[in-house]
Amino acid sequence: MKALNRYARAVAELLVLFALYALGTWLAQALGWPIPGGVVGLALLLLVFALNGLKPAHLQLGAGLLMAEMLLFFIPALMSLLDYGALVRQQGLRILLVIAISTVVVMLVTAFTVDAVFRWRMRRDT
């Protein structure tokens, strides 16, 4: 019974998240915003939290489930590699090189920026 309850709860929470997504998509289209419906839905949900309409705990099960299984939802897009055989053969290595170098650069820049601001504020505060 308890397990069934949990199951029903997860489904209900998922329905709320899907409904917010649908609402967000509709709003973005109706108002002609160039923003994906998911982002509008995210903003709507933050607004609901801010107005105390719902507590994050009310959606934690459904939201946690979606985020935990996120990989499953973008695996299909990866299968587009099927159509990129020629691209992979001709440019694959160079593409990997771009990704590798750029990732190192991003990580260094981000970490040192955050650390610098953090240290500066620590010095100023103490």
Partner: peptide, 19 residues
């Protein structure tokens, strides 16, 4: 393709950790 459509609701779900 509908699996990819779930990425929309996933985006909405990110509101929970942000809040």
């Amino acid at each position: 393709h509908w699996l990819m459509a779930v990425l929309g609701p996933v985006t909405v779900a990110f509101a929970v950790p942000i809040w």
